[in-house]
Simulated assay, not measured.
Amino acid sequence: MEDVCKTVNIIPFDYAISVIGGKWKMHILFWLWKKPVMRYSEIKKALGAVTHKILSDKLKELENDGLINRVEYPQIPPKVEYSLSEKGKALMPILHEICKWGHENIPNDYKK
């Protein structure tokens, strides 16, 4: 087993998990997949239990990693919209497969 660990390149997997890992990032990407442009308040409402700080942090991380676009409109009150970037859209086939797997394997008594 030790030889396998030396020959397997974990770096791409590690990078991918660092970009999409955690409780909220995939949820944010899911909602931006289903509704291509969303304002902060819409994302907050869709996610429900997320705190403002966590949501703000995760949106910044996703933007810094190039998965989402943030457009700020210079008006009063300020208007900010989020959408998937091309890099983020490239993840959607993977997200679709995760959703498909969930549909096929969800227990009858599963509750969110």
Rank of each mutant, 00 (worst) to 15 (best):
M1R: 12
C5D: 01
K6E: 01
K6Y: 08
N9Y: 00
P12C: 04
F13T: 01
D14R: 10
D14A: 09
D14K: 11
D14Y: 12
Y15E: 09
Y15H: 09
A16K: 04
S18E: 01
S18W: 02
V19H: 11
V19D: 04
G21H: 05
G21F: 05
W24N: 13
K25F: 04
K25Y: 04
M26Y: 08
H27K: 14
I28F: 02
F30S: 15
F30N: 13
W31C: 05
L32I: 00
K34E: 07
K35F: 13
M38C: 14
R39P: 12
R39M: 12
Y40E: 00
S41L: 05
E42P: 08
E42I: 00
I43P: 11
K44G: 09
K45A: 13
K45Q: 11
A46W: 02
A46L: 04
L47N: 07
L47A: 07
L47K: 09
L47G: 11
A49R: 09
A49H: 08
T51Q: 08
H52L: 14
S56I: 02
K58N: 09
L59A: 04
K60D: 04
L62M: 09
L62Q: 06
L62H: 10
E63Y: 10
N64R: 15
N64T: 08
L67W: 00
I68S: 02
N69Q: 10
R70D: 02
R70E: 07
V71A: 14
V71Y: 00
Y73T: 06
P74S: 07
Q75P: 06
Q75A: 14
P77I: 06
P77V: 07
P78L: 10
P78D: 06
V80D: 03
E81N: 03
S83V: 02
S83N: 02
S83T: 03
L84C: 03
E86G: 03
G88P: 01
G88V: 01
G88Y: 00
M92H: 06
M92K: 12
M92N: 08
M92L: 15
M92Y: 12
P93C: 15
I94A: 14
I94Q: 06
I94L: 14
L95D: 01
L95E: 01
H96Q: 03
H96N: 05
E97N: 14
C99Q: 12
G102I: 01
H103F: 13
E104M: 08
E104W: 10
N105V: 05
I106M: 13
N108K: 15
D109Q: 12
K111F: 05
K111I: 12
K111H: 06
